[in-house]
Design a protein around this nucleic acid. Structure first.
Length: 393
DNA sequence: ATGTAC
């Protein structure tokens, strides 16, 4: 059985690709979402499912004529980018430290932004639409421009990986930075206010929604699509810089065409057709896996990562997991593990090994191999990657 | 996930 139909007695069934029972709070959250009248057909849970805000991380929710802004979340358009380079592992020998230092010098991480706005950023076609975005962000364009091409924090990262055939891959994880966050929060607040005004009885106020055809829905959808595009381009800008750094050391600065390029959101909503109907699909910690779609499923710092190709499984709304999924909270991981554990679990990876990244220790995540086995009906594995260098946000 | 206010 590729998935399990959970016994939650909800109007919409919940199909789970996780091979474990949901925790109490997780089950409640799944139930809340599946009880909403505008949820289409069923809710799909990916094998890395875990607790989120409003909706589960690792869930796919298709809706008719409505969208839940808090289900999309605050990091609109968060996702992954990867390229397969023409370089091989041997060429990296002795270069990793230099590459890492260059990445740290050229790509701002954490709360940092770029000091100058590079041409490719200034020329982005969507800046002309900035004036149409929510009034609450109109003084943030300069900040958004300086943050375009910056990594951010949390679990955002930049990695050099090697696949099982010795090819070098460049990979990164980032989203829509401050601008996406502010836009999301503006609309989440509006949705909650509307729900209160209408005296809606929602199982959770975080499930406040917009109804298609209303000005609030249109405003959210416009900003959502803009922020998703910002996030995608942010990853493109960083990847271009990252590629130049690697080429500086591996091909004397000569530009080499990638053998494959992938850039996918795992936190977003879009219009799609499923079971013959037009629906809004919200993937919160899930990747689109339509037939021939390429996706990226990263493991934790010491684990494997996977480049996948979608199988177009309709029961999952053509989706797959976005990673391994946390096994425990960041707080718990910091209590449970020591720096020695971290050093041991990240052997062979050029990365920081201190307190600041202890919560990203591989032991705090589910085993990615199991997660991949649970979604064999959703994706085929195209490449299996192991990181050799990792810069955390 | 993001900085802002404490």
């Amino acid at each position: 059985m590729p998935y399990e139909k959970l016994e939650l007695s909800t109007p919409a069934p919940v199909l789970s690709w996780a091979n474990h029972e949901l925790g109490k709070e997780e089950a409640k959250m799944a139930k809340n979402v599946a009880s909403l009248p505008f949820v289409f057909k069923h809710v799909a849970l990916m094998p890395d499912v875990h607790l989120g805000k409003g909706a589960l991380v690792g869930s796919v929710v298709a809706t008719k004529e409505a969208v839940i802004p808090a289900a999309v979340g605050v990091d609109i358009g968060c996702g992954m980018a990867a390229i397969k380079t023409q370089f091989t592992a041997e060429q990296l020998e002795g270069k990793l430290k230099k590459i890492r230092l260059d990445i740290e010098a050229e790509i701002p991480v954490g709360f940092n932004a770029n000091k100058d706005i590079e041409k490719t950023v200034a020329n982005w076609q969507r800046w002309v639409d900035f004036k149409d975005l929510h009034g609450g962000v109109q003084d943030l364009q300069n900040k958004a421009m300086k943050q375009m091409g910056s990594l951010g924090g949390g679990n955002h990262f930049i990695e050099v990986c090697v696949d099982t055939e010795n090819a070098v891959w460049l990979m990164l994880h980032s989203g829509s930075r401050n601008i996406g966050n502010v836009l999301a929060q503006c609309h989440i607040s509006t949705a909650k206010e509307l729900a209160k005004l209408a005296e809606l009885t929602l199982p959770d106020l975080d499930l406040a929604y917009f109804v298609a055809g209303t000005p609030e829905f249109d405003a959210y959808w416009r900003d959502l699509q803009w922020a998703q595009n910002y996030a995608r381009y942010n990853r493109d800008v960083m990847m271009a810089r990252f590629k130049r750094i690697v080429e500086k050391y591996l091909s004397g600065g000569k530009s080499k065409k990638p053998l494959l390029e992938v850039n996918c959101h795992h936190n977003y909503a879009e219009k799609e057709v499923h079971f013959g109907e037009d629906v809004y699909v919200t993937r919160k910690g899930a990747v689109r896996a339509q037939q021939e779609d390429y996706g990226i499923i990263p493991g934790s710092m010491g684990a494997k990562s996977f480049i996948v190709k979608g199988k177009g499984n309709h029961d999952s709304y053509c989706s797959c997991s976005h990673g391994a999924g946390r096994l425990m909270s960041r707080t718990k991981a910091k209590k449970q593990f020591t720096i020695d554990d971290l050093i041991q679990q990240t052997q062979g990876v050029e990365c920081r090994k201190d307190d600041a990244v202890l919560d990203e220790i591989p032991g705090a995540y589910k085993p990615i191999e199991q997660v991949m086995a649970n979604q064999a009906d959703l994706v085929e594995i195209v490449a299996t990657l192991k990181q050799v260098l990792c810069v955390k946000g």
